[in-house]
Nucleic acid binder design. Structure first.
Length: 562
RNA sequence: CGGGGCGUAGCGCAGUCUGGCUAGCGCACCUGCCUUGGGAGCAGGGGGCCGGAGGUUCGAAUCCUCUCGCCCCGACCA
């Protein structure tokens, strides 16, 4: 392929809109252009990358006997109404009516439609198990598209769905997918973790996410380097580290105007871990006191699971219920329900005195307050690992894939059932498994770049080798180019030839930007000495090789490349 | 949806506060000369309803009102 014939609009300046490294580089290197918020055009180079990724996806999905099919993006409302998601999902779903005024929506995922198919086509346990997948466009009216290709309103997704007769079957399908995902992300050259995650609205009990570390990621995980515990902070638990002991008698202290943990700890010269944080929440109009250690944040989802829907109390409600303003609340002598994080169970703390401008030192659990004990804090770096107790670290990550055990959440409402060997009807047990190919590409760039541009892992690079003849009017250069091209192409190497009439510097800069793993440079002077240069993008190592050995050296360099 | 920022040539920006020459600069683009191993140089050239609508004014990129769009933080994320 000739550079001069291809649309590769590289840019010297970064468009001001771009923030994430992958976004900047994809724009600068001529991979994508933005149409509107969260809508991107994939130019030829990007499409080549996507095709490489998708072909890896197909190989690995087929390897676990999943079958590719494709489904409409336009869906009738009734199916979504049957599972209830038509009503549960709000603005995120694109909805429209057809000419007969029938409600329709654009597919944001395909559990409903896949289950509809299964309901029609699967009759017997003999038909099971099945795994079906597609690589298809999804549409979600995202509240906030961001970071270029990372969070868009229209994107392709590899989504697969497993159908089994029982839980044991689902376990096998789930494990097969997890293994396939490991192979896929490894082949794509990503660093990633498989983490425990929140099943959320997908239903079901077990879910894992595949996370690629990157500062551009929107999610955060905690990691234990000792025992291997890894979890999304959405679900992560952690044990508290030991508090610097406070040893004093129960006493009031004057803390005028000091309402926040930060102010109080600074004023008293104590660590936030010595303080007790009291929050009043309203749980269907019943007030409830929630206690955390001063350094902790309330994990709303954990509390939600315990008490159901709740909201923070208003200032008026706080005063009416507790007789004190926020900032000086203490857990002592209230006759409302108290839920406390276990970090407060032992030790001595400072809390509000239940009167303005005063705090109390020497608070002890069970002595000064009684509570129900539950893990309700957000795990963070520095906390103890819930499994082994060692210190946790945390990392920002991009979610590149997820796997869910759905159970019968969709098969029951859509009546996807089979007859077992006893002739008894049972709901099909399902799983669903997603991967975002665009996120793989973006994560690969996030993890592999330098100041000059992209460094593609070779398995997903748009081309295998770039050849840059520096002076095309030189006959020896043209002959060498032709010979190398003719020898490499039939061996399956995809080659980009920079045949543009540009100065060498321009070609070098663009080659670095675009990020093809191997770069062969044909210089007139070197050729006179019978040499060509072979350069590896990632290591920047370059070697002058005898023309006659160049093809083999290039093949070797490519096989050794990242 | 709440908070903040920004819309001037393909890209990056100045000009806006304090209204007034023909709306400017760099890069990119076109022509010619020259140059050819890390985004060369010289000369000439093309490209703008200053996001849109309304208003104030003798006069608006600039002031006022409304509106649309994009980015960032947060909420949300099936």
């Amino acid at each position: 392929m000739y550079f001069s014939k291809m649309l590769i609009p590289t840019l010297r300046d970064v468009p001001a809109d771009a923030e994430a490294v992958s976004h900047k580089l994809m724009l600068r290197a001529g991979y994508v252009r933005q149409l509107a918020a969260g809508l991107y055009i994939y130019l030829p180079l990007a499409l080549r990358v996507m095709n490489k990724i998708n072909s890896i996806l197909r190989q690995e999905m087929n390897f676990i006997n999943a079958q590719e099919i494709t489904m409409p993006v336009l869906h009738p409302a009734e199916i979504w109404q049957k599972t209830g998601r038509w009503y549960e999902i709000k603005d995120e779903m694109f909805r429209l009516k057809d000419r007969t005024d029938r409600d329709m929506c654009l597919g944001m995922t395909h559990e409903e439609i896949m289950t509809w198919l299964a309901a029609r086509e699967i009759r017997s346990y003999r038909d099971l198990p099945q795994s079906w997948y597609q690589i298809q466009t999804k549409l979600r009216d995202e509240a906030r598209p961001k970071s270029g290709i990372l969070r868009t309103r229209e994107f392709t997704m590899k989504d697969s769905y497993s159908f089994d007769a029982d839980e044991a079957g689902l376990d096998v399908s789930y494990a097969n997918h997890a293994e396939a995902y490991h192979r896929i992300f490894n082949r794509c050259g990503l660093r990633f973790y498989q983490v425990e995650s929140d099943p959320g609205m997908m239903g079901g009990a077990t879910a894992h996410e595949f996370m690629a570390p990157s500062s551009a990621g929107e999610d955060e995980i905690v990691i234990c380097n000792s025992c291997g515990y890894v979890a999304n902070i959405e679900v992560a638990s952690s044990i508290h580290t030991k508090t610097e002991d406070l040893d004093c008698s129960y006493q009031e202290v004057h803390t005028p105007g000091k309402k926040s943990i930060k102010d109080v700890s600074a004023f008293l010269g104590l660590a936030p871990t010595n303080l007790l944080k009291s929050l009043l929440v309203m749980c269907s109009d019943t007030p409830m006191l929630v206690l955390l250690r001063g350094d902790q944040e309330l994990h709303e989802k954990k509390l939600l699971k315990l008490v159901g829907k709740f909201r923070p109390a208003s200032n008026d409600e706080i005063i009416n219920t507790l007789g004190v303003e926020a900032g000086f609340i203490g857990p002592m002598s209230h006759d409302i329900k108290i839920i406390s994080d276990p970090s407060l169970k032992s030790g001595m703390f400072v809390a509000g005195a239940n009167k303005s401008d005063y705090h109390v030192k020497g608070i002890k659990a069970d002595t000064h307050f009684k509570a129900e004990w539950h893990d309700i804090h957000v795990a963070k770096a520095g906390d103890g690992c819930p499994k082994c107790g060692k210190i946790l670290s945390s990392e920002a990550v991009i979610e590149i894939g997820n796997i869910f055990k759905l159970g019968t959440k969709y098969s029951k409402p859509l009546n996807a059932v089979y007859l077992d060997s006893n002739g008894k009807e049972n709901p099909i047990i399902m799983g669903s498994y997603g991967i975002g190919p665009a996120r793989i590409a973006a994560a690969a760039i996030e993890q592999n770049n330098d100041k000059d541009g992209i460094i593609w892992p070779k398995n997903i690079a748009p081309f295998d080798i770039q050849i840059s003849p520096l002076n095309l009017s030189d006959q020896a250069t043209r002959d060498t180019l032709d010979a190398m091209y003719k020898e490499l192409s039939p061996k399956g190497f995809e080659i980009l030839v920079d045949d543009r009439d540009e100065r060498p510097g321009v070609k070098f800069k663009d080659a670095d930007l675009i990020g093809i793993p191997i770069h062969i440079i044909l210089g007139e002077k070197s050729l006179k000495e019978g040499l060509v240069e072979i350069k590896t993008r990632k290591t920047r190592e370059s070697a002058k090789i005898n023309v006659n050995d160049a093809v083999n050296a290039a093949i070797k360099a490519h096989s050794e490349a990242f």
